[in-house]
Structure formats: structure tokens, C-alpha cells
Amino acid sequence: MPKGLTFLPSLALTAMMALPLAAETKPDASTVLARVNGDEITLGHLIATVAALPQQYLQAEDDVLFDFVLEQMIQQQLLGQQQEDLTTENALRLENEKRSLRAVQTVTALTEAAVTDEAIQAAYDAQFKDFAGEDEFDASHILVETEEKAKELKAQLDDGADFAELARENSTGPSGPNGGALGWFGKGQMVPEFEGAVIALEKGQISDPVQTQFGWHLVKLNDKRKTEAPELDVVREELVQTIQQEVIQARIDELTQQAQIERPALEGAGPEIMRQLDLIQE
């Protein structure tokens, strides 16, 4: 067995040699890679199997992975030939898988047709054409333990003291050594009392003492601005997902309106019956 690979579940068997085949000059999905008691395993079967493998298998060298997967498929075929029919449970799982794959095909076709550069641009324009931006604030503060200390510092500031210098000398907050600078922030990022004080200030103005759960603050509004609309590439994936969700939901709604859907009442049991595995284990 190739180093770094493990056998697929329930197939840890001794390797068996495939029947020799004539070389194909132009392989396609129908190209036969092995015949097991007459049943064919094609290149298409192998490609579909590899495409569904976990990432850890795909890290193997191509020649190693090719031989390994084909060998597993041969062993599966040998074991599968020992059964004439699927059990009820497995037959139901196969029906579920077919239903799911068909739905995926429909979804893929819908989204591939809907997601175009033009559609993405239109979605971007619709979402941001009237974008007014949100307020952002650049503020500094001095944090102290008591109202008396805050009033004392406010008096010094009113007399012309330097805000950053007083912050470095007196603020107990982590921004103190940086002159109390907090940088830019938007609404909802600060506690309500602090945010309210900031919003009420004009550029360059210093607040009266403001109490929060952290202590007493003197707040200075350094600057104010509006956020800009994001570049299209920044929100492209979000727009793609929105387009996909809308086209899928629209198609589901349309099909639902056209369909005749019946939901007979479940009699003699409640929803917990879905856990009774013995009903499908025949």
C-alpha cells in the first residue's frame, strides 16, 4: 500500500491484480480501466471517485493515487458482486443521494447562468448607489477614578493645558501613554455613555466629566468622517452569494407554485418515529 494512504472504509483487503487491457489512444469517460468478472470500471468512474475524496488523499502523487483508487474500486466491485440487491436502508440512501445530486445539478445550472459580471455590477450598484456612509469618530480621552479628579483636569484644560500631556500624566486607561488617543471607531464600538458624549461634541471640543463602568472620562473629539462604500472586489463574494440565494429561492418559489405537493398526516406516531432505524433495516 502506498505510504501516506490508508484503505477506504471496510476495504482493507489483499490487493488483487486487474485484468490486462488494450491501451486506449484517446481516453475519455467511457475508457475501460478494468473488468471484474465482466463488469467494467471506467475512467469516468475513477475521476468521479477522485473528485469526491478528502483533501488528504489528493496530496498524493498522481501515479500513486491512480493505482490506489483503481485498486479500491476493483475490490469494491468484487465485494459488490456478492450482493444481488441493496438492503432497504441502502436503497433508500441511494434514492436520497440521487435526489440530492439532481438538485445540485439544477442549482449549479441556475447559479452559473445568474452570476455574471454584469449581474454582480448591478447588485453592487443597487446596494451602494445611495450609500451615505456611517459616522466614524477619532477621539481621545483621559480616564480617572473620581469625578473630583476629572473636574480638576477639566479646569486645567479650560485654562489651556495640553490634552495629550495630561492624559500621559493622569489617565489610568491603556491609551494614556499614547496621549489618550483611541483612533477611529464607529457607533456601537464604545459603551453607550462614552458614545453619547462623543456624538454630542464638535471637532476639537472637550466634554465635561462622563461616568462609565470604567471610571470618569474627559473626551476630546479630534475628527469626524463618513465611511465610504467598499470597493466592488471587497464585497464581490457577498454579492455572488446574494445573487445565488435569490435565484435559487425564486426558482423554488416558482416550482412550488406550479407543483402539486401533498403532505399526508402522520398517524399513529409523532416526529420521534424518524429515529426508528429498525423500520428500514430489513
Rank of each mutant, 00 (worst) to 15 (best):
D117Q: 06
A197F: 01
K224S: 14
A114L: 01
E145D: 08
M190Y: 08
K151F: 12
E228A: 09
A167F: 12
A229Y: 07
P230V: 11
S100D: 07
P177I: 13
F131K: 07
N178K: 15
A119V: 05
K224A: 05
A109I: 04
P230I: 08
A197Y: 03
V191M: 02
P192D: 10
F214N: 07
S175F: 02
Q189F: 12
T108D: 15
S140P: 14
R102I: 15
S140K: 11
L218H: 08
F128T: 02
V198P: 14
L232C: 06
H141D: 11
K187C: 12
A200W: 01
D208Y: 02
L232V: 06
F185A: 12
Q127T: 04
E193D: 09
R102F: 15
K224F: 13
L143Q: 03
F131T: 06
A161W: 09
A123Q: 10
H217Q: 03
A164V: 00
V219L: 04
K154V: 07
E136A: 04
Q189E: 12
G215K: 01
L182W: 14
T227H: 12
E165H: 11
A139M: 05
D162S: 11
A126E: 04
A181C: 11
A229L: 00
F214M: 01
I199W: 09
W184P: 12
A150F: 05
V191R: 06
A119G: 03
A164P: 15
E228P: 15
A122G: 11
M190N: 08
G183Q: 14
A114G: 02
N178C: 04
E112G: 08
P174F: 09
Y124K: 11
